[in-house]
Design a protein around this nucleic acid. Structure first.
Lengths: 145, 145
DNA sequence: CGGAAACTTGAAGTTTGGTGGAGGTTTCCC
DNA sequence: GGGAAACCTCCACCAAACTTCAAGTTTCCG
């Protein structure tokens, strides 16, 4: 088995054929064609699809995922090093999201629960007037120090 | 300042007034009314909004967030213990998402990058025929052991 | 007390991430 | 080589999560 049909890729990636066609229209994945114009996927596309699914599942929009994937080489099959580079450029972004979730998990009772969003006494929160300079929202959980 | 107007809550939470009205229609937050029928929010709503924003930002649908918030007491202002209980019930869910992101961060080069999605040799991956019994998708990153 | 800024409702519009069906073609297996 | 299963394109539709608009009301500051 050299290449995968759309049904095979769908079965292995857990992504519906319709979604795969949609991803292709957006330029997130690519497919060759059979003599009769049916899509044929290289095995390497499986990695791309897995990447897309996981990133999408944690709320990263497909356009941004596309930008990230655009960093992979166009001509050849991405190597481990290529994926490593992509991983590195996303590290900050992903770390940020992990911090967000850890905040949700660990500080819910501590920080949101204590009311520091509205009071100025919590050690974790900026005083309101300082935090306000950085825009609105739950600053400390969103990554300000 | 006893209660907040919708503009004030918007400024402090980083959520647009239109979104706050939308959340109210969905039953995620509640508001009192002024004599002239304008919304007035208790300070405790700020915590709910922060919770909603963070949860939504990591891809949890508003309906599920609503279910979680429905666990908070209706009659009185939620205490720290109430938030703790909510936090506990969400712990599994949030932990799962953190694992997903850590997988994206740490194992991108190791697991996706090594091609174990398509090959059977990676120690982290189930053999394909066993994984298939659990449905499709990148199983090990999605939480199977 | 006048007027600007902020608020009200309801309905319609937008963006994102897809799904479903019609009408036709290809592939694969016996 | 015949037929079922899988594929093709195009287009319409869907749901979630909001935003925008219109027409009118309230609040607050000087």
């Amino acid at each position: 088995m050299e290449s995968l049909t759309i049904g095979e890729l769908a079965a292995r990636s857990g992504v519906a054929p319709s979604a795969l066609r949609y991803y292709e229209r957006l330029g997130l994945i690519r497919a060759g064609r059979s003599g009769g114009n049916q899509r044929r996927y290289e095995r390497a596309e499986l990695r791309r699809v897995a990447f897309i699914r996981i990133a999408a599942q944690v709320g990263i929009p497909l356009e941004e995922i596309k930008s990230a994937l655009d960093g992979l080489p166009d001509a050849r099959t991405p190597t481990r090093a290529d994926w490593a580079r992509l991983s590195a450029t996303w590290r900050r972004r992903v770390d940020e999201r992990i911090r967000l979730l850890e905040g949700l998990r660990d500080n819910l009772t501590g920080c949101i629960g204590c009311g520091c969003l509205s009071l100025r006494t919590c050690a974790l929160a900026n005083p309101k007037d300082i935090a306000a300079q950085n825009g609105s929202g739950p600053r400390w959980l969103l990554g300000d120090e």
